[in-house]
Design a binder for these strands. Structure first.
Lengths: 191, 191
DNA sequence: TAAATAGTGTCTAAATATAGGCTAATATAT
DNA sequence: ATATATTAGCCTATATTTAGACACTATTTA
């Protein structure tokens, strides 16, 4: 990123970022990442290349920004009241729903060598980070004596994204109920 | 208009105009024109007021620009090969289709005092102008001896927009086939 | 393998957008 | 009736975008 998105952004900057996000998201529904060019993004967003480089180092930079944005956006849907285990299941469900309602995107991610690709690890990393943030904020039991809370949060987000990978790449036909059941079981030690 | 849209426009200017067009179009589907504020437009388009006034004198100015844009846009669908009477029917059908596929917009135009409102006359004027342009370009018979071609084009565009008004305001339930039949009859003298 | 084509990333002066302040007019509520 | 809030336009210094050129590196195509 060439700018600091944690700072105050002008209306114009917000519009520009949004346009590039949408352009990359659309492009990912049409071709795999390696085939997408900066020119594609600029054409879709109706911004010149110079503006793209005002904001991003390259298309991977935009991709990473997109994933962290999507991560945050997905978890916005979690109501503040959801807590503990329900919150974990909900977090997982939101991620699963996202990919299920964006099939072409998932297909193009899979084309880049499936679960072992650099691309998916990158994606998963950003989603895990946001999941972790949500879990720390909402889903940690107030009384955990046996392990440090942050370790617990890490365990949970690893588990959720691991489950997600398994559902998307290993067992794409598994229904949500079954997946939730597996997740609950694993949360209680897997037996 | 504060700028000359017939001149070359930068990418940014095109984006800005497009955003304001879409914002006004959306707003017209939600409330009647008099209730729409410049702030509404700016909020929808995600542009500041200053930028609005860089382009337009006021919201009526934007509305007029929108209608001439829509007029041009509607008639882009007429294939170059369509000629003479078929072209006239097609021109009429495109206009009718446009309003039929934008019911909420039509309702909000009607709310502004129906066919007698200043607003509809304004709208109709811009549509008539574009219809006329298309008719002059494509639909005039090459051999018209009895009247000047431009008078004929004027007669045709008046007739088409008159038919449109009748279909939208007087007889909103008439089906397209009947409307086309009426139009054909009127084109041949009305008997 | 050479040539042509398409893509990357950087740079600049000129064009355009931006925040926010201003006055006056018009609604809205009390 | 009068206070309060919203809206319309305009203005300006600052920030951002823009076109197009540049040097360079893939990737096609012949």
């Amino acid at each position: 990123m060439k700018i600091d998105i944690t700072q105050h952004l002008t209306l114009g900057a917000k519009r520009t970022l949004k346009a590039f996000r949408i352009a990359m998201f659309e492009a990912l529904g049409e071709k795999e990442f390696d085939k997408i060019t900066v020119n594609d993004i600029c054409q879709k967003s109706e911004y010149p290349r110079a503006t793209f480089y005002n904001y991003f180092d390259d298309k991977l930079d935009l991709l990473q920004y997109l994933w962290s944005y999507i991560g945050r956006d997905i978890f916005k849907k979690i109501p503040d009241i959801t807590r503990n285990e329900d919150g974990l299941i909900e977090t997982f469900n939101l991620l699963l729903d996202f990919f299920h309602s964006n099939k072409p995107l998932l297909e193009n991610i899979k084309k880049s060598n499936g679960v072992d690709s650099h691309l998916w690890h990158n994606t998963a990393g950003y989603l895990k980070r946001e999941a972790n943030r949500i879990i720390v904020e909402y889903c940690l039991p107030s009384t955990s004596k046996r392990v440090p809370p942050k370790l617990l949060a890490r365990f949970y987000s690893d588990l959720i994204v691991g489950m997600l990978e398994w559902c998307l790449f290993e067992q794409p036909d598994v229904d949500k109920e079954t997946a939730d059941k597996y997740l609950t079981t694993l949360l209680h030690g897997g037996l």
